[in-house]
Design a protein around this nucleic acid. Structure first.
Lengths: 239, 239
DNA sequence: CGCCTCATTGACCTAGTTCAATTTGGGTGG
DNA sequence: CCACCCAAATTGAACTAGGTCAATGAGGCG
């Protein structure tokens, strides 16, 4: 399982076999989490980064009024807190949405890896910048895309991301979250999310039932969502 | 001027004198821009990064419907597109809001610098991660903070950031943008921004007149905005 | 002086929220 | 296998933050 993921990352980020081995050797320790568990707590000094190998988690923050904003969903293959290496302390938490398994990579190992192979450092840096790019696209969604469009955009994003790691089945994929989670991610109320889902369903563009998203015609949904996958930087790199 | 900025960055990011000299030697070429000019265009291959030494610019994207979303304001001292080093191609544009001057740092020089001093690489990486952290806080603002609160939050953020580079005067600072720009950044209409500004003014918390923000009581405004500067990572680092 | 951009205000409209039920479906104990 | 339970989904009705449309001021500058 972890091998398959390393292979995927290897291809996507143009890893050499040597690079992959270097990582492999240092990534053996795993941790497991239950839904609702905090994988990485906000505000604490962190000494290792976590590669999510199984399950779904999310980045989120709470406001002082108690409402929670989800800023990103993490899927298998994501380094959920690689940015804790440069930042040391995170501004937000990572929370498990399902049963999750992560593999640790100690920060001191990252330092060592980068010292001996600066090119790999740039690749790791790249990975964190893709997250930033997603944040920016979400900001566009929040500021300039309303209602069903916003929901549709998220469904497209998740499709592309999950496809890369082989977690789509034809026109559908498993998205193991509740409508309440969805609402916290989209900046809507649960009720409104429900209505927007119905709208997409009625339009025949997408269904979300029993934690499964089905998209009969991806291009059509992309059109509805004003979606362009460029910001995900999925094309293989060539540095 | 650039010396003063390097000094500021030096303190904030724990640069050694040697590091600073290394950068100084490679940052000599400057470019100038007029309001509205595109400093870094979306989607193009980029071979150098730009340190903004004078003026204000912003990160923004356009939707296909033509509306523009501003995702961040850049101020003097910001490496506006350092992330173009790992990404190579940017997902958004950087546009000048006022007369701007930037200093170039070639990507090949960055590679050289990092190869000879990996620690400096981590510092540069850190700088880009602070931008990502700001994006996340903005996402919270969009999803969970409404009306005048959102405006207040931005005013607080700008105060802290400008203070670091010595661009505040007591309780006020110059913020050379229009209410329309403000609206595009906050996800409101110009009209609504105007109303929210009046609200803050009536409450005696902040005024924005002739491109000048005045905050009589910063703590009070922070309370109104649910603002906590931690996400800006302004505390001097200690790696 | 006159123009043009930007700020301001009012009146009306709508997307999204709030409150309050009701339904559905998966899981669990008897 | 059925009865029950509980979380999640769904729907309706009333309300409000924010948008839209339209008009008026106010400042800067050629």
């Amino acid at each position: 399982m972890i091998e398959k993921l390393i292979a995927t990352i290897q291809e996507r980020y143009a890893f050499s076999e040597e690079d992959a081995n270097m990582l492999r050797a240092r990534m053996t320790e795993t941790l497991e989490f239950k839904p609702g568990d905090i994988i990485v707590p906000e505000g604490e000094e962190i000494s290792y980064s976590s590669l999510l190998v199984e399950g779904f988690s999310c980045r989120s923050k709470y406001t002082t009024e108690g409402s929670r904003q989800i800023m990103q969903f993490n899927i298998p293959g994501d380094f959920v807190d690689l940015h804790s290496y440069p930042l040391e302390v995170l501004d937000h938490s990572i929370t498990a949405l399902t049963d999750c398994r992560i593999v640790k990579l100690q920060h001191r190992d990252i330092t060592q890896i980068i010292d001996s192979n600066p090119r790999l450092g740039r690749i790791l840096w790249f990975a964190t910048m893709v997250d930033a790019s997603m944040h920016r696209e979400w900001l566009v969604c929040f500021g300039a895309r309303a209602g069903a469009m916003r929901v549709a955009h998220l469904f497209c994003e998740m499709f592309y991301r999950l496809q890369v790691v082989g977690l789509t089945q034809g026109k559908s994929y498993r998205f193991p979250i509740t409508q309440a989670d969805l609402a916290q991610a989209l900046g809507f109320t649960t009720i409104h999310v429900n209505r927007m889902l119905r709208e997409l369903r009625d339009e025949g563009l997408a269904t979300f039932r029993s934690k499964e998203v089905e998209i009969p015609d991806l291009k059509a949904l992309e059109g509805r969502a004003d979606f362009d996958p460029a910001y995900l930087y999925l094309e293989p790199r060539h540095q």
